[in-house]
């Protein structure tokens, strides 16, 4: 049985729904998105229900996570940034849980669909634009001119900064999507080699499968972390507008 390593990302319509020409069918990705939300919500509610002074396993994990997100926000945005805590924490928990649930054999990695990651990154970037323009008005366009730019460099810097601003949501989306997809393709290829290699040579790709699988556990966390910290950085840029130096500590 030869199977393409990309086969795992194909989506079939399980429950075809079409409303006004829009394809809203329920497929594996949708179902696993619900699973991720359900698992994350149940675990978090369970962790938060006891509220002991000396926390149990689940509660200390949840407290570590909240503390982790809080430090991330404080470092990048300062104290005012805590108003974005719900958004940032939701993104982090959702991405973390979908990365980890995707690592269960047979499960679907929601974040391996670029439309999911793109929806998140454009949402974040859109919010940062709204926050920037509502806080600073037209002065927010000054983000295109970095502080300390000599006057004659301005016509050169503005297109460069426009490009790097447009690149922000794109790189945010592509990074998460590409890392999750590449990891799963690699696992599929190596495991395919194991199956077709037989006992004599198949152990070699199998060792690599296990090694890459363990590596993917780290990647799953690091990618969720990077996505969230960049969310904080972009929101902080819009929030402070060249003011990192005073808020950096």
């Amino acid at each position: 049985m030869e199977e393409s390593p990309l086969h795992q990302f194909e989506l079939q319509r399980w429950v075809p729904i079409s409303i006004g020409g829009l394809d809203l069918s329920i497929n594996k990705a949708v179902v696993f998105m619900w699973v991720v939300i359900a698992v994350a919500a149940v675990l978090m509610v369970m962790a938060g229900s006891s509220r002991k002074l000396v926390p149990g396993k689940l509660q200390s994990l949840a407290e570590m996570m909240v503390d982790f997100i809080r430090t991330m926000i404080m470092e990048t945005m300062g104290k005012d940034g805590m108003r974005f805590f719900p958004l940032v924490a939701t993104l982090f928990v959702f991405i973390l849980f979908s990365n980890y649930i995707g690592l269960i054999p047979g499960a679907y990695t929601v974040t391996s669909q670029i439309i999911v990651t793109a929806a998140f990154s454009f949402l974040v970037y859109g919010i940062s634009l709204v926050v920037g323009f509502s806080l600073h008005g037209m002065k927010f366009l000054g983000i295109l001119i970095p502080p300390g730019t000599p006057g004659w460099l301005v016509p050169l810097m503005v297109p460069i900064e426009i490009i790097s601003q447009i690149a922000r949501p794109i790189s945010l989306a592509v990074r998460l999507f590409a890392n999750m997809t590449a990891g799963h393709v690699m696992l599929a290829v190596l495991f395919g080699l194991t199956i077709s290699g037989g006992v004599l040579i198949g152990w070699l790709p199998f060792v690599f499968t296990v090694a890459i699988y363990l590596l993917e556990f780290g990647i799953a966390f690091i990618q969720a972390y990077i996505f969230t910290i960049l969310t904080c950085v972009y929101l902080g840029d819009a929030f402070h507008l060249h003011g990192h130096e005073e808020h950096a500590h």
Binding site: I163, S164, A167, I170, S171, R175, A178, Q223
Partner: peptide, 15 residues
């Protein structure tokens, strides 16, 4: 390490 590569590439592609 993971950030820098994509940042470089994304800006190049957008440009």
């Amino acid at each position: 390490a993971v950030r820098i590569g994509t940042e470089l590439l994304a800006a190049l592609i957008v440009g």
